[in-house]
Design a protein around this nucleic acid. Sequence first.
DNA 1: CTGTTAGCGCATTCAC
DNA 2: GTGAATGCGCTAACAG
Lengths: 359, 359
Amino acid sequence: MSKTPEKTSGKTPGKTPGKYATIQDVAARAGVSPSTVSYVLSGKRSISETTRQKVLQTIEEMNYTASSLGQRMRQGKTHSIGVASPALRANDWSLPEFFGSIAGAAGMHDYTAGFFVDRTPQQLVELGKSRFVDGFLLIDTTAEDPRVEALKAHHIPFVVIGRVRDNTGITFVDFEFEQVMQAAFRHLSELGHKKIAYHRLPDRTSQDINNGFYIQDSLEQAKKEFNMQVVEQIVPMYRDEAFTATLDVLDHHPDVTAIIAHNHIETLHALHERHVRVPEEISVVGITTAVAAEGCIPPLTSVDVPISAMTKLAVDQLIRIIGGEAPLDNVIKPAHLIARKSTSAPMESKLVGSVSEHF
Amino acid sequence: MSKTPEKTSGKTPGKTPGKYATIQDVAARAGVSPSTVSYVLSGKRSISETTRQKVLQTIEEMNYTASSLGQRMRQGKTHSIGVASPALRANDWSLPEFFGSIAGAAGMHDYTAGFFVDRTPQQLVELGKSRFVDGFLLIDTTAEDPRVEALKAHHIPFVVIGRVRDNTGITFVDFEFEQVMQAAFRHLSELGHKKIAYHRLPDRTSQDINNGFYIQDSLEQAKKEFNMQVVEQIVPMYRDEAFTATLDVLDHHPDVTAIIAHNHIETLHALHERHVRVPEEISVVGITTAVAAEGCIPPLTSVDVPISAMTKLAVDQLIRIIGGEAPLDNVIKPAHLIARKSTSAPMESKLVGSVSEHF
DNA sequence: CTGTTAGCGCATTCAC
DNA sequence: GTGAATGCGCTAACAG
């Protein structure tokens, strides 16, 4: 199959505008009007089979692909959404899943996702007003997030992944963090655990990240609901302190039979280093994604955060809003604990008060 | 009047019902022509201070921001680049730095970076031909990468981060992998190490990922250049096998005084588990990013891969190409070993042949 | 069933 | 120094 050697011959002789054929070129060559070509492509009205074939063939011959620039211009939309994120954490293991799923979800709607790291609210507003993007996905929101106010004030479409303190009038997709601890406590309680350790987030984190609030609340609720002794340790998320904290539990709280960990990786490494078998000697519950949990040794019992599902939903909502449709109801993805291989009934000998009873 | 009686598109001065003000609106209100407004904004020709101020003030009043849609249309460019990546590895620690730096570098040129995960060469070509993006950054290229051929055949601008087997006529930015082993060997040799272990990549990986070739070559060179005993172990990148391999070294090669590791995380964990002190008892050299290396305990001596610098350069090159300029010369970022805290002189008692000499 | 036509918002030539 | 006019490539409203 030989490609047209003379690229310039598509239109007026001597004219070499862009290097691609336009819909006009195709129409001229096929002897029809531009709108016919457009309709053949979009299928928005019926075309006689004869002309359809002719147009299709010409498109093939000229190697034509519709310019999204023209389409975007005509439609007044950029077909791209912005993901506004604060500085990226260097060791966030959920990031690949996060990026991948956003890019994938956007792609299904023929949208691109562009990433805007660490931009000011003002910059985001400019990006929106200039229609550089059609709207934003906001991630890692804080309780009082200035980006939310700014975008709202300028009527720029956005969806929050997470929540802020005052969620009235905003569209969000979040995880049911207020049930996380109950789910974990319930599971451990049913297995017979009486005394557990929890790597609590430091207060500053709790205030900065909105999830912090919900998790703290959830912990208080769980403590009321279940008769469980809890050793609380302040452990910043994503830091090596979780390693030390775990060793601390082993050293100073030998009767603890389970650990609920935000940073399960470090906890597992610490236990492994001390040759403490999981779950035979101690159970571990994480809060992470299914992919990460299944990758653990042993596969981690975890309250799974459905990142892909959440981002997909968020993208869907954003595109509804961009398209002028009313968004669906806000969704808080329920927290479910998935029992994998890192939890079991506690060792008899370690059970609180059982030492004297059994020996 | 036009045709539609109700579809007043905001042409009436001072009123912008739901849409944004256009350059026409501003011009009308300021009593000048659209081109004047345009020139005030672009500074591409001189404007009398009087009108300049008036226009600027009107822009302020009407809260006008130029539509990038119109600009893109006029310029024939989308102002967005695509990053074409195979499936994202779930535990690639360099990903945040990678994404962040690409987004940042693109932002400096007023470009967005969109991520296209796991697309076929054909899909990428369509994306380019439809001017959905202006060009591509190709990452994780293989020796014979079909994406390269496809994009080249259709004259779609692209830059490779990495290299392919035949690099004639393509623009790339890469790291000097062919010097990595020499750098590591030299450092260890200077410290006095005589016998070391290397976690070699499996052959299949070497063929799939172009880096593999260069690293293997580098290893052969280094073995010739330095008088060093080398225990080679096949270890897939990014897998737990590195953990086991490290334990193997400890168990079966007690006289090894240093390890060169592609997957330093697992190696460090294994050593930590066995209570082997780094660098007192064994030295470790990694091949990773500065950020990751500095985050290690102890801070890792490493042949640093300058991800941010490479991506920035790649983005710059791509944007030159998109703009019709000739790209600068291809760059291979030199491999430098940065000595941090994970290497030191070997233990006297472990030195090959030294046991009998000293005791 | 198909063609004509009018913009989408902007940057840029050409006139003055 | 400034304004008027011209498309960029496409879709959709309006005629046939």
